[in-house]
Computed example of a mutant assay.
Amino acid sequence: MRSTADRIRQAVSFELIGILIVTPLFAWVFDHSMEEMGVLVVLGATAATVWNYIFNLGFDHALRWRRGDVRKTLPLRIVHAVLFEATLLVLLLPIFAWWLDASLLTVLVMELSFAAFYMAYAFVFTWGYDILFPPQRTEQVA
């Protein structure tokens, strides 16, 4: 299992790199100012950072409980990314609609775009992170 410090490093680096990529990209794609999109992205990233820690901790505990190990196979990485993004989407949809003063349907399209981007980004980032900072193997308790 990863230490708390390692989980914090992972979550913060994930969000900082994501903010630097997504703010200018989505300001351009959705025709909003950098400032307006920047506030939205930072708000979403802050919520995502907290959720990232909670979600990954719970996911790793579930893996250890079910399999005795926290290493992820390719299919498990896909499930991990999809579940993380789906739960984050549900949490952020009303906040984004309020901030942009837009309908839930309009924001759902935006959120699905964010989710698609971040799902691919999360997959690549966590795989790279696991290579750079491998999780410690866990011992099975008899």
Rank of each mutant, 00 (worst) to 15 (best):
Val79Tyr: 11
Arg67Gln: 09
Arg2Gln: 07
Tyr129Trp: 15
Gln10Gly: 07
Pro135His: 01
His80Met: 06
Leu89Ile: 09
Val42Phe: 09
Ala27Phe: 05
Phe14Tyr: 12
Met37Val: 10
Gln140Asn: 03
Glu111Gln: 04
Pro134Met: 09
Glu111Ile: 01
Ala120Gly: 14
Leu108Ser: 05
Phe55Arg: 05
Leu74Ala: 14
Leu105Val: 15
Pro24Ser: 03
Pro24Trp: 00
Trp127Leu: 09
Val22Ser: 13
Ser13Gln: 03
Val29Cys: 08
His32Cys: 03
Pro24Asn: 02
Thr49Gln: 04
Ala48Ile: 06
Val50Trp: 04
Ile54Cys: 04
Val124Ser: 03
Thr138Cys: 13
Leu57Arg: 13
Ile131Leu: 14
Leu20Ala: 15
Gln136Tyr: 08
Asn52Ser: 07
Trp98Asp: 00
Leu43Phe: 06
Thr4Arg: 08
Phe96Thr: 11
Leu91Arg: 06
Trp98Lys: 00
Tyr53Arg: 01
Met1Gly: 07
Ala120Cys: 15
Val82Tyr: 04
Leu93Cys: 02
Asn56Met: 14
Trp51Glu: 11
Phe133Ala: 00
Val107Gly: 00
Ile21Thr: 05
Met1Phe: 06
Ala48Cys: 09
Thr106Gly: 04
Arg66Phe: 06
Ser33Met: 03
Asp31Cys: 09
Ala11Lys: 00
Phe123Tyr: 11
Gln10Arg: 09
Ala11Pro: 00
Gly38Gln: 12
Ile54Pro: 02
Tyr53Asp: 02
Ile131Tyr: 12
Ser103Phe: 06
Leu105Lys: 15
Arg137Leu: 08
Ala45Met: 06
Leu105Cys: 14
Leu100Gln: 06
Phe59Gln: 08
Lys72Gln: 14
Thr138Lys: 10
Trp127Ala: 08
His80Ser: 07
Thr73Met: 02
Leu63Cys: 11
Phe117Lys: 01
Leu76Asp: 13
Gly38Met: 12
Val41Ile: 13
Pro135Ala: 00
Phe26Leu: 13
Ser33Phe: 03
Ala120Leu: 15
Ser3Trp: 05
Gly44Asp: 06
Asn52Leu: 03
Ile8Tyr: 00
Ser103Gln: 05
Leu83Gln: 07
Ala122Ser: 15
Ser103Pro: 06
Phe84Leu: 12
His32Gln: 10
Phe133Gly: 00
Gln136Thr: 12
Ala122Thr: 14
Val124Gln: 03
Val42Asn: 04
Leu100Glu: 04
Asp69Val: 13
Ser3Glu: 06
Thr106Pro: 01
Ser113Gly: 14
Glu85Val: 15
Leu57Phe: 10
His61Thr: 15
Tyr53Ser: 01
Ala62Tyr: 15
Leu112His: 01
Arg64Trp: 08
Val109Leu: 10
Leu25Asp: 09
Gly128Val: 01
Ile131Phe: 12
Val41Asn: 04
Ile78Phe: 14
Ala115Val: 10
Met110Lys: 10
Ser113Cys: 15
Phe14Trp: 07
Thr23Val: 12
Gln10Tyr: 06
His61Glu: 15
His61Arg: 15
Glu36Tyr: 10
Gly44Met: 05
Asp31Arg: 12
Glu35Trp: 13
Pro24Leu: 01
Ile8Glu: 00
Gly44Lys: 03
Val50Cys: 05
Leu89Glu: 07
